[in-house]
Design a protein around this nucleic acid. Sequence first.
DNA 1: CGGCAACGCTAAATCCATTTAGCAAACCGG
DNA 2: CCGGTTTGCTAAATGGATTTAGCGTTGCCG
Lengths: 342, 342
Amino acid sequence: MATAKGQRRSTIYDIATATGTSPATVSMVLNGTWQRYRISEATATRILDAARTIGYNVNMKARGLRLARSGLAGMIMPHYRNRFFAGLSETFEAGARARGFCPMVVSTQRKPETEREVVERLLSHQVEFLFIVGVANPDPLNELCSAANIPCVNIDLPGANAPSVVTDNQGGARMLTDILLDKIAAPDPSFHFLGGVAGEYATEERIAGFSQALASRGIALPETHIHRCGYWPPTARQSIEHLHDKLGGLPAGLFINSITAFEGAVQFFRALPPQAFEGRFIGCFDWDPFAAFLPFPVTMLRQNVEAMIEQGFSYIENYRAGDHPLTKVPPQLGPSHVKVPA
Amino acid sequence: MATAKGQRRSTIYDIATATGTSPATVSMVLNGTWQRYRISEATATRILDAARTIGYNVNMKARGLRLARSGLAGMIMPHYRNRFFAGLSETFEAGARARGFCPMVVSTQRKPETEREVVERLLSHQVEFLFIVGVANPDPLNELCSAANIPCVNIDLPGANAPSVVTDNQGGARMLTDILLDKIAAPDPSFHFLGGVAGEYATEERIAGFSQALASRGIALPETHIHRCGYWPPTARQSIEHLHDKLGGLPAGLFINSITAFEGAVQFFRALPPQAFEGRFIGCFDWDPFAAFLPFPVTMLRQNVEAMIEQGFSYIENYRAGDHPLTKVPPQLGPSHVKVPA
DNA sequence: CGGCAACGCTAAATCCATTTAGCAAACCGG
DNA sequence: CCGGTTTGCTAAATGGATTTAGCGTTGCCG
């Protein structure tokens, strides 16, 4: 890296020399603790002026080393390519800044090896706490944190070894399914579930909620109505296409497990004529501003990003090692639901 | 729970004590430079083992302080709420990691004051270089960097005081307009431009390209066809609504300046019947997977995020103070264009 | 006028990792 | 068996900010 070999960045020693004082005095003045140490106002002003004119900026490396406080707040997450994750990181950043930290958010593309490496890096940079978002298996990462004695919380996917905050997947799925059911006139509608990974926490929780809502209205849910086709859009597309061909049309109710699977479904839907959607109702457990305006009725759930992050900070602030509670935050109806005309 | 000592994090001194060696030896072994310093293999293995069992992790604060190299790569950007910005940060992160840095991306919500504060913070954490993305006025930020002697590049919006990488807005707009023109049968179609801010770099460049494409086919472009209604969706919505009412329908060609303005337009479009779009062609200077599947024909341009970031790194790697080139990266047609049937 | 406090500031230790200079012991050739 | 080299390691300085202990003055009281 061909960094211009110019002049060194200025230090408190430079200021001390320039003002004929000592580094200790400069430090006290710049920290605002000078009154406590009986530095005269004249000296303080002189130092402050000098600092301003040479454009001094603390070296957090040195400061952090001395104080064992880095001022860094860490977060890892899969990516930023949907509103849920984008919202989580922006809310986290705002929260961290409000609390006097510098946020450090790194995306890991859902690769366990990258996740591990990034966590190790963040810990070696001495982040003071860590939010772990959307990680399939947070346990090894939680372990790294507790070995380093750094508080952490899991967001979106829970773990047994750290406090966790997740969306109320089951309750949300029940709510979404009930909304779809309310719209449907047919007596015994066929409902299908699309997307997600077998055995994965969020998927199974949502299937449970979906199933409960159907059961409470006496609607059967054969295992064949559940299509855990993953999250990758092309796979989801293929899956819905197969289903459509088999049924000779769309099912009356379709519950789509995530915005990513929805992206795949939309790619198939656009080939269908408008009447293919008559009497059919689609729900998606996620929200996106454009998806909300597609040419067929979709009810979207928005996960309560703000509440989730707030709860995460609250866990960090009241951190007790060995105590691993789990909070489930209810999702909300997406803006589209409100605006869609009946 | 591999922590031997519950409280403090372990240091090379701990390892030295545990293995009956000196901190210097430990440092050499852990850095892999021990062969060069003639440390015996037996000692090296002993130290490595000890490091592993107590779960040692370098303190980058101390290391960075000594080496004047933090290992941190900084980036600031407005937000992550669209594919362009999300793509920029993910590509940046991958590039930084590939080069051995720990990426530090912070969003600033387009607030100049936050931008300034965040840059100061990143500098005080000694980032080794800084990518400045989508900042209306990068000059004061570039100045902060050069005062701290830290290389920086501007991405998306250029500045006169640092190397800059932007999309070829003018060329891209010309290309997009030409595509729309090719589709239109009418002899003298009316073309409108929607979105963006008067005087803003990208907006004016795109208007210039738009205007050139029209001019080269002899199509008039009165100033009243250009609607710089900002980026906020509700304003864009209102603007397109007014236009529609005035014209008694949509214009033959509509060039929308950004995905955000497009979001507003879509909110209005959905109230229109399908035939309102017959013979009308819409282009958007941005790409989104859902927007690409709306029920009317949209041609979307995808900015070449990968090439932009690569060019940014190349500027950093060949950094020469005082040299401030500008690269314009051509955008590409969004995936939707390819798939849309004629 | 001696003693003590208040005042205004500084020296030096500390945080942890890196690296140069160099020490003691083993070893070798003659 | 002595001078010289090699081997294997350590002491100590360094980087920048913080903080405790303390030093020299002046001012005040008795």
